[in-house]
Structures are given as structure tokens and as C-alpha cells.
């Protein structure tokens, strides 16, 4: 495989990890908890996208043979799948996080309940859609060709799209967080929830906002990965979720640029593992993670000390 395609693979994979990790980061920054249902929402986003483009449910689930009465182009299906995923993330916040928060429970409990919510979601997908894999056909992209020529090399259009959309979302999100009133309010809740209350900021609303955005990001990245490498089954989000968790820790918990940098490093590291060693991809990625953390325990861009309730 030539270098440009390899680089593109690494970058687009890294961008997906970064999007994923950013979802964790948003929720972590307002709640101080890792939301372990995030990977399941990613998976769900892929299935939503598949159904919205007119895909048919396989023979093994309760929904066997089901097909929506319409087939949307990918460009429309993806944001809709993102919105549907955001609603699911809000539902998870409502049932798995808020009741515990109201009782002042330890954040470890919220971590476990979010893990539970994720497992239930994945099982539900399996029950409804079966364990088979689904592919999102390239044809749903409309008139776009399957390959583009880039600097003399042929690269997959899907890969370019994946990278472009992820980067766009990352940029929009950073600009919003740093530059808008509501982005600043969300950061205020993250830094000091009590002071945020004294400014009149409704922390519950900010927490819902964080869940909604992170659900949207998860759903969109799920749909993109589904298009790029197909949906391998209800459990396919788990390995991405774990990898993104690594990215998160690597970049520095709670740091938005850190999540992006971490995604880039892990994605490139994986892409440049020679094909002959492809079975070692994960080992290389996690090896990198281990090495960096030994050298820099707070992560690459993490704050030296975390003040979190």
C-alpha cells in the first residue's frame, strides 16, 4: 500500500478515535465520570445510519426483514442517525446518571451504571438486529466516485470523507467550547459547579447538553466507520470505545486538544503497523499508550493536577 493511502488511513482512524474520545471528554468534564455507554451509542449510530439509508434487518433478529419505507442518501442519514443517538444518550443520562447524582452517589457507581446501560443497549441491538454484520453500500454517497486521486495516488473516497467530516466536527466543537457563551458555561460547570450555580448556570442543563453532543458525535462516528469498514455486529463499538478510552488518557483526561492529539498518535501508530503484523495492531497501539503514560502520567496535554468533585 502506498504512503499516502497509509497516512490517510492513519489520519482518518485517528480522527474517529478523537471524535469518540471527545464524547468521553465532554461528559467527563461536567461529571467527572467516564461514560461507559458511549461505545454502545457509537454502535447504535452505525445501525441507525444503516436503517436510514434503507438497509434491511437480517434474518436473525426480532426485526427480521424490517426495512424503512424510505431510503435516505447517506448525507441525510448520517446527521439524522447522530440526532437519534443524541436522544439515546439523553435517555441514558436520565436513567443511568441523574438518579445517582440526585442521591449524591459516588462517581464509581455512575461508571458501573453507565456500563450496565451500554451492555443492555448492545444486547438490545443483538436481539433486534441479530449478530450478523451489515455493510453500508458506497452507492449511498450519490455521485461520488469510489476512489479519488490525491497527489498522484489513488485513495478511497470514504477515507477522505471520514477525515473531512471528523475534522470539521472537531473544529466546530472546539470553536463552540472556547468561543460561545454556552461553551464557556459548560466549562464553568466543569471547573467549579458551585460557582457556576452562583452565576445562574443550570448545571443539569449543561450536563444534558454534554450528553446530547457526545451522543451526536458517537452516532456520527459510528455511521462513518460503518460506511468505511462495515458494521461487524453489535459488539463492534467496544474495541473502538476501549481504544478511544486509551486516546483520552493519552491526551490527558478532560483536555480537548489532548483528545485530538491522542487520536492522531494512536491512529497513525496503528496504520503504520506492517500488513504482515496486522494481528499485532492493538498490541502496538496499547504499547504506545503504555510507554507514553509511564513517561508522562498526566497524559500529553493533561493538567498537572485535576480538581474534580
Amino acid at each position: 500500500m502506498d504512503l499516502i493511502q497509509l497516512l490517510l488511513n492513519g489520519l482518518s482512524l485517528g480522527a474517529v478515535y478523537a471524535l469518540f474520545a471527545l464524547g468521553y471528554t465532554l461528559v467527563f468534564s461536567v461529571l467527572g465520570v467516564i461514560n461507559f455507554s458511549h461505545g454502545a451509542v457509537f454502535t447504535l449510530g452505525a445501525y441507525f445510519t444503516y436503517l436510514l439509508i434503507g438497509g434491511q434487518a437480517g434474518a436473525n433478529g426480532l426485526l427480521a426483514g424490517l426495512q424503512l419505507p424510505f431510503a435516505l442518501p447517506f448525507a441525510l442519514a448520517l446527521p439524522l442517525a447522530g440526532l437519534a443517538s443524541a436522544l439515546v444518550a439523553l435517555l441514558i443520562e436520565r436513567v443511568a446518571f441523574r438518579p445517582l447524582r440526585r442521591r449524591g452517589a459516588d462517581s464509581l457507581l455512575a461508571l458501573i451504571s453507565s456500563l450496565g446501560a451500554g451492555v443492555i443497549l448492545v444486547n438490545l441491538i443483538q436481539l433486534l438486529m441479530g449478530a450478523e454484520s451489515y455493510a453500508i453500500p458506497i452507492g449511498t454517497l450519490g455521485a461520488l466516485p469510489a476512489a479519488l486521486s490525491l497527489g498522484g495516488a489513488q485513495v478511497r473516497t470514504v477515507q477522505v470523507l471520514l477525515l473531512a467530516i471528523s475534522v470539521l466536527l472537531l473544529v466546530v466543537l472546539s470553536v463552540w467550547l472556547e468561543g460561545s457563551r454556552s461553551g464557556k458555561a459548560l466549562q464553568a460547570v466543569s471547573e467549579d459547579p458551585v460557582t457556576a450555580q452562583l452565576l445562574g448556570i443550570d448545571s443539569d442543563a449543561m450536563i444534558r447538553l454534554a450528553f446530547g453532543i457526545s451522543g451526536f458525535l458517537a452516532g456520527v462516528s459510528g455511521g462513518l466507520v460503518g460506511l468505511s469498514v462495515s458494521i461487524a455486529g453489535p459488539y463492534f463499538g467496544i474495541s473502538y470505545g476501549l481504544k478511544a478510552l486509551g486516546v483520552l488518557v493519552l491526551g490527558g483526561l478532560g483536555s480537548v486538544p489532548g483528545a485530538m492529539l491522542g487520536g492522531l498518535i494512536i491512529g497513525l501508530a496503528e496504520a503504520f503497523v506492517p500488513a504482515a503484523w496486522s494481528g499485532w495492531k492493538d498490541a502496538v497501539a496499547y504499547g504506545f499508550l503504555f510507554l507514553i503514560l509511564v513517561l508522562r502520567p498526566q497524559g500529553l496535554l493533561g493538567k498537572p493536577q485535576t480538581t474534580k468533585v
Binding site: R181, L198, L199
Partner: peptide, 29 residues
């Protein structure tokens, strides 16, 4: 706060990671 009760808390509690202007902007949230 919405009712009109402002509270300047003990120990200042400015948002250290945001600019002076952002702190003031959030005061008018």
C-alpha cells in the same frame, strides 16, 4: 440568581481557566 440575589462567594472562586472577560460575560449568563 434569577430572582435577583447575587452572591460573591468566600474565597473569590473566579474561573481560573477562563479569561477575565469570559468571567464577566458569564456573570451576565
Amino acid at each position: 440568581v434569577k430572582l435577583g440575589i447575587g452572591h460573591c462567594p468566600e474565597g473569590r472562586r473566579v474561573l481560573a481557566r477562563q479569561s477575565v472577560a469570559s468571567n464577566l460575560e458569564l456573570g451576565a449568563w
